[in-house]
């Protein structure tokens, strides 16, 4: 119900878009889209870009709804962010893993966590700086139910990821199309992004993980690309896989972004090769 309401608000904002103030001065699509953890990025990976379109004298914000339906699970995210002067991004959101297949056996429908993010642009501009744009961020995650994560060996119900991200757009780099390259180094203890808690019987230390994305702007409204996200493996009960996806994002104007992707979340809690479609709707204001 809450998701429906948010979807309605998002759509209402979009359709009345022309009546609102412009959402900021940065060029189209340079805010990325809302990742599944609420930080501006692609679908699975946070980028060095800050959300929305605020430039150095402006504010902006985003609302987003995302859902990935893989074979035996559904991952959803609902969140919001604000961007102050293209310097600081604050994000908040709720992520849910519906246990479509395991639910009955575990007597639990879903795993849920809240994610609070802060990202600070350190230096540079993704379009104009020769060495790109760099940002650091944290994502503080809090499990709302810890019974299942605890039962499978997770140590903590809260955890904080730290990351350093670099993003750079290369103009006319491939077939005269602009190419966006992102690399993110994340320190994390999270199991399945935190949905299965933090730390475990196989490790309770921060692991450094590499995440990256490459996208090509077919024109200024269409971005297509791939993402890869390395993941730790702290729980002995089941192997954890890296994630990847192939995406297409449509950004018709500064108010709307729609992202479709094919995601591969690998093995999750013993269920193999979880793949499926991802769809995300983002409104900016």
């Amino acid at each position: 119900m809450k998701r429906l309401l948010l979807a309605w608000i998002t759509l209402a904002l979009l359709t009345t878009g022309h009546a609102l103030a412009a959402p900021g001065s940065r060029l189209w699509a340079t805010g990325g889209v809302t990742s599944i953890e609420g930080s501006a990025g692609g679908g699975l990976v946070p980028w060095a870009l800050l959300s929305g379109y605020a430039s150095d004298q402006e504010w902006s914000g985003t609302l987003a709804l995302s859902q990935a339906s893989v074979d035996d699970y559904t991952v959803s995210f609902t969140g919001a962010s604000i961007n102050w002067h293209n310097r600081v991004e604050l994000s908040v959101g709720r992520q849910t893993l519906d246990l479509d297949t395991l639910g009955a056996a575990l007597n639990e429908d879903e795993l849920t966590q809240d994610i609070f993010g802060v990202k600070v642009r350190l230096w540079g501009d993704v379009l104009y700086s020769p060495y790109g744009q760099w940002a650091v961020g944290i994502q503080h995650k809090r499990n709302r139910e810890f019974t299942i994560p605890s039962a499978v060996g997770a140590r903590d119900e809260t955890g904080t990821d730290l990351y350093l991200a670099g993003s750079k757009l290369f103009f006319a780099a491939a077939f005269d199309r602009n190419v966006l390259v992102n690399a993110t180094l994340r320190g994390t203890k999270a199991n399945q992004g935190g949905l299965l808690g933090f730390g475990g019987d196989q490790g309770d230390r921060y692991d450094m993980q590499l995440e990256s994305s490459v996208g090509v702007f077919l024109d200024r409204r269409w971005l297509t690309g791939v993402e890869y996200r390395q993941k730790p493996d702290n729980l002995s009960f089941a192997r954890e896989s890296d994630w990847w996806d192939v995406f297409v994002a449509w950004v018709p104007n500064r108010h709307l972004a729609i992202t479709a992707a094919w995601v591969n979340l690998g093995d999750i809690a013993g269920l193999k090769d979880q793949q499926g479609a991802y769809l995300s709707l983002q409104g900016s204001f």
Partner: peptide
């Protein structure tokens, strides 16, 4: 789009 991008590459 190609020409736009090539000009932007020289202006950036």
């Amino acid at each position: 789009t190609s020409a736009q991008n090539r000009l932007l590459a020289r202006l950036a």
